[in-house]
């Protein structure tokens, strides 16, 4: 099972779109995918047409009951989506209280890893959507994954957020005595603007070792897809956005992507 975390400490950079689009592209290849929403805003669930406040249980309950997790209990919290082979472990707003409730406890950063371990035989991929806040949930998402995908909107303010995210990863590496693999993904690229090419150049100069050699363009099909509660790969498979995520997936699954 491959585990990817999509993270950036800046909001609105395309994290949820990246999670859903990659998941969509994977299920089109016949893979079984679990997407995990760790953001209390629960945008991933809303994107997939699942209102987290309407369902009886969520990731929050698993955190609260982290000392008695079993595979069947975890499976009971996972909900199927309208897309075949794509399941969701949903968030709930109550997750916003996790830092206060459980942030004092040793080992609370390893709960999600434990959850995923328990269901690893049921899925080929797990993709984790992260909140834009450094706290217990983000630490869990980073500790659970093999690879971190950092979508960065191609504009200057977003580059600042990228510095912060990479600093966080380095500090975490220092703690865990390991090195996170991370890939920077330029998103919302709009060639008609001045800012996008300039920001892309800046990314190429500063992060060449970790930068994906492609980009995710601005595409209205992403909006259409979210309105239809389906991945862009299912809603508009030949759109520029969908093609771009397929390329990204190819890269991530290649040797270069995982090295």
């Amino acid at each position: 099972m491959k585990i990817w975390t999509v993270a950036n400490q800046k909001g609105g950079v395309g994290k949820t779109t990246t999670v859903v689009s990659l998941a969509g592209a994977l299920v089109k290849q016949g893979k079984r995918v679990l997407v995990i929403d760790t953001d209390p805003h629960a945008s991933l669930g809303y994107y997939l047409g699942i209102d987290s406040e309407e369902i009886p249980a969520s990731l929050y309950n698993l955190f609260v009951e982290h000392q008695s997790l079993t595979e069947s209990k975890i499976q009971a919290h996972i909900v199927p989506t309208s897309v075949d082979h794509l399941d969701l472990l949903p968030a709930a707003m109550a997750l916003a209280t996790i830092d206060r409730q459980l942030g004092h406890e040793d080992g609370m950063g390893l709960v999600l890893r434990n959850i995923i371990d328990n269901v690893s035989s049921s899925y080929d991929y797990a993709i984790i959507d992260c909140p834009p806040v450094l706290g217990v949930l983000m630490v869990n998402a980073l500790a659970a994954c093999e690879q971190v995908l950092i979508p960065v909107q191609t504009e200057f303010l977003a580059l600042k957020g990228l510095d912060r995210m990479i600093k966080t990863l380095k500090l975490m590496d220092r703690t865990q005595q390991q090195q996170h693999r991370f890939i920077v993904i330029p998103t919302m690229f709009d060639k008609r603007t001045k800012a996008s090419p300039l920001a892309l150049r800046e990314l190429q100069q500063s992060y060449s070792d970790h930068l994906w050699n492609g980009l995710i363009p601005i595409d209205t099909k992403f909006r259409d897809a979210s309105l239809a509660h389906t991945p862009v790969s299912h809603c508009a498979p030949n759109s520029r956005g969908s093609v771009a995520y397929r390329r990204l997936l190819q890269f991530l699954d290649s040797e270069r992507g995982v090295s």
């Binding site: 000392q67 206060r100 409730q101 459980l102 942030g103 004092h104 406890e105 040793d106 080992g107 609370m108 950063g109 390893l110 450094l134 217990v136 630490v139 869990n140 500790a143 966080t168 500090l171 975490m172 220092r174 703690t175 865990q176």
Partner: peptide, 26 residues
């Protein structure tokens, strides 16, 4: 603040030694 963050990470990422009840936050 780096030290504070590393300290935060260390606590959260500490492998549990036992599964006994955990002290409630103050």
């Amino acid at each position: 603040s780096d030290i504070a963050v590393v300290d935060f990470f260390s606590r959260l990422l500490k492998e549990p030694q036992s599964s006994g009840p955990v002290e409630k936050p103050k």
